[in-house]
């Protein structure tokens, strides 16, 4: 997939998913249910090496760092905030922070968890600003352009509709659960981090991250069982 900017964009939920989508046969089912081990061009070793070059002062590495890291950060931020335009802005803000903090990136460290932690800070600051604006009565209206859940592109009409409804339930539930639960779930389920890495990214204990992620799972599972996603697979 190639962006209009000419950048090759990572396909985070690529064609490797072998899990069965219950309702619709399409390549997009694999995207929705892709395991967290899905391959990506931003392989850790490569991203780590580029970040290390940038931390050492090689300014020219920024473009490559952005090309490799921005899709990961944008996907993470999109899942946190649910708004593609806001995710774009936060991705830019996160990269500005990465640039400012580059000298603090430890030699030999993993770049992705470090960048995700910085992206999370950008998201939290934005959420705090919104909360403050609401607290002082500035309500500009819900301008949030939420991402349309990605329904499979092919399949029979009722199946497409059911799949769309199920993804909508997941999105709505993700949006309604506490941010601490949401970020833990997103990091473990969609970003492919280990529990230890996720705990460090959010600055909590491993036990707390496990519980938060599982609470999020339980909330989404309950919402799906309540009607929105009867077709979602169960073990």
């Amino acid at each position: 997939m190639t962006a209009d900017s000419g950048l090759t964009v990572w396909d985070p939920f690529g064609k490797s998913a072998g899990l069965a989508f219950p309702m619709v046969e399409s390549s997009d089912k694999a995207a929705a249910f892709a395991p967290v081990t899905a391959p990506s061009p931003a392989t850790p070793a490569t991203l780590d090496a580029v970040m290390d070059r940038y931390a050492r002062g090689e300014d020219a590495a920024f473009d490559e760092l952005y090309r490799r890291g921005a899709p990961r950060l944008r996907g993470f931020l999109l899942r946190l905030c649910g708004d593609p335009a806001l995710a774009d802005d936060l991705t830019q803000e996160a990269f500005l922070r990465v640039h400012r903090a580059r000298g603090n990136f430890a030699a030999g460290a993993a770049a992705l968890p470090w960048m995700l932690a910085i992206a999370r800070n950008a998201f939290l600051d934005q959420a705090r600003r919104v909360k403050t604006r609401r607290a002082i009565g500035d309500r500009p209206g819900d301008s949030r352009a939420t991402a349309e859940p990605e329904a499979p592109a092919s399949g029979r009409g009722d199946e497409v509709l059911a799949a769309r409804e199920m993804l909508d339930v997941v999105r709505t539930t993700l949006d309604s659960i506490p941010p601490l639960h949401r970020e833990a779930f997103v990091l473990l389920r969609f970003e492919g981090l280990s529990v230890g890495e996720a705990a460090q990214v959010v600055g909590a204990t491993e036990g707390a991250v496990k519980i938060r992620a599982f609470r999020a799972y339980e909330a989404i599972r309950a919402a799906l069982d309540a009607g929105g996603g009867r077709g979602a697979k169960r073990p």
Partner: peptide, 21 residues
């Protein structure tokens, strides 16, 4: 935590959208 994989990603397609330079 293995049960987390039951939940589909509602932003799978949107996450693949072109990245703004």
């Amino acid at each position: 935590l293995a049960r987390l994989d039951e939940i589909p990603d509602p932003f799978a397609g949107a996450a693949m959208a072109p990245i703004r330079p």
